[in-house]
Write a protein that binds this DNA or RNA. Sequence first.
DNA 1: CTGAAAGCGCTAACAT
DNA 2: ATGTTAGCGCTTTCAG
Lengths: 318, 318
Amino acid sequence: MAVTIRDVARQARVSVSTVSRALSAPGLVKEATRQRVLEVVRGLGYEPNRAARSLITGRTGNLGIVVPDLENPFYPAVLRGVQSRAHEAGCAVFFCDSRVAAEDALVRTMAAQVDGVVLCASLLDDDQVAELADTTPMVLLNRTLPGVSSVLMDSASGMAQVVEHLAELGHTDRVYLGGPEQSWSHRRRLVGLADRARRLGPFEPTFDGGVEGARQALSTGATAIIAYNDLMALGVLSHLSTRGIRVPEDISVTGFDNILYAAMCHPPLTTVAMPTEEAGRVAVDLLVDRLAGGPAECRELPTRLVPRASTGKAPMFS
Amino acid sequence: MAVTIRDVARQARVSVSTVSRALSAPGLVKEATRQRVLEVVRGLGYEPNRAARSLITGRTGNLGIVVPDLENPFYPAVLRGVQSRAHEAGCAVFFCDSRVAAEDALVRTMAAQVDGVVLCASLLDDDQVAELADTTPMVLLNRTLPGVSSVLMDSASGMAQVVEHLAELGHTDRVYLGGPEQSWSHRRRLVGLADRARRLGPFEPTFDGGVEGARQALSTGATAIIAYNDLMALGVLSHLSTRGIRVPEDISVTGFDNILYAAMCHPPLTTVAMPTEEAGRVAVDLLVDRLAGGPAECRELPTRLVPRASTGKAPMFS
DNA sequence: CTGAAAGCGCTAACAT
DNA sequence: ATGTTAGCGCTTTCAG
């Protein structure tokens, strides 16, 4: 059997409540006793039983995060931010990839054992999200819903920067390969795009989706392809290379997210940097605030264009 | 207040113990009563309180996994396998990236709230791992320790295949850019390498580590660079490209892991495919067996060479 | 097959 | 400032 609060109390010659207080309400016990207790705690290697504690407090000390696709490097980056901040806040984090099961089922399962959850780029409809948010404290990432905290990355501005960049290079015929239609990020990118590019899609926001998008884009004769995200842009690059089309001489390509590989591919990808890790940290902050009884809050983080070699002057432009 | 077992008992006109049994020991209660209870459970939306349950059983129904670097796509793949299998087994999974805090501290923290942990590619020394394994049921991934379950990917054979492939292409001067010296995978790769390549390193198993490795490799005059993993190989490719060195015409390059980007880079990378997702699933299987009182078990999964365009005939070889 | 009762380890009134 | 005590919601003997 593990060492319990009673063992500590006995050895420190105090009552269990004093031990409890020494540990979780330092102000309520005399410094000398507290030290004595702490010493015994260390000596015995006592670790409070979380189950017992939660049974009373109703708190688990855990946070949950649900992401749509861990294999998109965007999410590990977010997760890293979440985890480091959660760690600072003394919380452990449960994690789920929603390809494993339905998003709402996952959140519900999680809700039972965490104090709150970070829901990333949810594709659920508003009613479903609202229902979940009603059950458990929640912060949304790249998604909004009235009354629910959220952390947003400014996709509209990012996309506007992309279009402007392309325009400056002389591209007049631009095509956008869209992501999932329910996606908030996709819709915000459309806002930034306005009517400054044709639209194709929706496509899967993956490498293969990009390959398919490139195929379709080629038949439009556009000189610039704007992909929904970097993963797709990588697929676009790959397809163009297969077809012997040069980037950026023949066609310019842009992505979104600035994942690690955007800098490593050939040619390096012009893209929009997203404050992923920061977003993860802010999400936890908002969640913690919420748990402490604060109000729902919405925070938008800036994005910025990262020009690289996949964009160049439009052909025949001087 | 949430609905408790007592509410169910009252409404189903049975005792709490009957409800408890109906839920977790179906054999011990008459089918008719069980149905009645289940109906009330559904009607009330009753969900047993996990804290209360674990307080008694000592089980949490949770698994933990610690990985060294979530941003290496190798680990999300493992994580995916772990999660899908855990989900089937009715377990939720806690996750930690050991860049957030010291590995052993993380495992210890986790141990308090999971039934067992999967420890990936640990760099701790044997004593430390042994101590942890003593505290909590554990399965090691790509690491061995007597008496502890483990899932291994056959790095030695994979590396032997790489060297053989290079030899067939006429490369006689090969150089290996090593990974972390404490890494089991690294040491197994050395075994597969035997004395068939010079050795450089250790390097960080990252893109930047690869860049540095390439720099050093160039001064050796070798015609083939064998990187510890794909991330490094990507760095090698990048550095060579910067220096105007052609791959594979001037130098051949190989990686290890077959991450998604190995197929997407330029030129596509010859590498060794690792059964990552499978390994994650097997790890959970072994852990579950262990929790059920089974013996420690060791499973080695095969790897295989994936030849792509980054390797070619040695210069001057015909 | 079912019920009564005793806790699991801890926190939070309530006393002192 | 510290001790006493009553549970938190559940499982699990032990009786019947």
